[in-house]
Design a protein around this nucleic acid. Structure first.
Lengths: 193, 193
DNA sequence: CTATTTTTGAAATGATCATTTCAATACCAT
DNA sequence: ATGGTATTGAAATGATCATTTCAAAAATAG
């Protein structure tokens, strides 16, 4: 039948991700997105609906990419302590590669939009629940293996770790001293031993 | 000589702070500021220069207000551990009172603008240095009093605490369970004993 | 090759953006 | 009171905002 979508949706999403990550949601204009994707304005609306819907898809793509990446690395870990180290080192890497001080897209998004766009808020909320579940699972396993103490429940430690990750990523925007950040990670994880 | 500034500058700054805190820098329009301050558009430009300059003054006012508040509470503390508890409980209070999920203005600002506006970046940088210095001082005193261990230097612990505060404040945007957050604070501070 | 369906391109929409302009107004020193 | 100066109000600026419109182009199925 018809002419079919010619562009590669993932490529377009990646280009849009870069723009939103650089300038934030409110700082990004439709013109920015047209320029970055080299898609026509009407094609964007046709394929994604609106700026907000495109942004939601960008967030989804960003999250999927990152958690796939993490899952791949977690496969090769041997115990819970290893797993947490892998996770924290992934965040450290993204800090050290973030030469433009952009921060984490999801954290920026929460900071910018949690009190403005219900669709965004519930997306972030779901994302957080997933992250907390993953962390709780790791901690629980570590406690079963007697690698981690039981001073707090796995759920409590998970929230602590989640909070620590966000703090690390925010700190890393303006403080990029690798040794100092490694030391922070070491201090964060110490309490679990 | 002339007609003199009729409005109260601090009141205007407070009203502007509310708008910027609610909607972020890019989400706030000059019209929003005119409406909120009931100042004339030209009076704002006349008195503050531009949207960015007004925002910088808002940040400065926000920071001063908060650190004055903190200094007042720190006077009544008896030791370093008390001091840290007072600080973390102030952040906990602002989380529990933040029913609109606005987060911390300074953290939001770093997330939104650290990679965009050099004037903002250097402001935030100075603010961070001050906070780190304060934390280092408290930790140092705690170590002298043998209340805190010396596993890390005061400077290292200060960065860890700074990171933890930012994480707590970000976590508190969507997780406002008081008991859970108190538990996170307890876990954060445990490593210093 | 043609009919059908969708994506395009480019322009138009009307709202809103930050900032400027300038006459009118309000104040203070004299 | 009055002259001089700074603040005001209201409108204008021109750029940019997100989104829509619609004819032209492109691609597949028959």
């Amino acid at each position: 039948m018809p002419k079919v979508e010619t562009f590669n949706r993932k490529e377009v999403l990646q280009k849009a991700t870069h723009v939103f990550h650089n300038k934030g949601y409110n700082g990004t204009s439709m013109q920015d997105l047209v320029d970055a994707t080299s898609l026509n304005r009407s094609s964007i609306y046709n394929s994604f609906g609106s700026k907000l819907m495109l942004f939601l898809e960008v967030l989804s793509h960003y999250q999927t990419t990152n958690s796939d990446n993490m899952a791949k690395k977690l496969v090769h870990t041997h115990n819970a302590k290893d797993a947490l180290l892998v996770i924290f080192n992934m965040y450290l890497d993204s800090i050290l590669n973030d030469h433009e001080k952009k921060g984490c897209l999801l954290i920026n998004c929460k900071s910018e939009m949690a009190n403005q766009e219900p669709l965004i808020t519930s997306f972030i909320d779901k994302n957080q629940e997933q992250t907390l579940a993953m962390l709780e699972d790791i901690v629980y396993n570590g406690q079963m293996e007697k690698i981690f103490n039981q001073d707090q429940t796995a759920s409590q430690y998970a929230l602590y770790l989640f909070s620590s990750i966000q703090g690390l990523r925010m700190t890393g925007i303006l403080n990029t001293d690798k040794t100092a950040l490694e030391n922070v990670i070491h201090t964060i994880l110490k309490v679990l031993n």
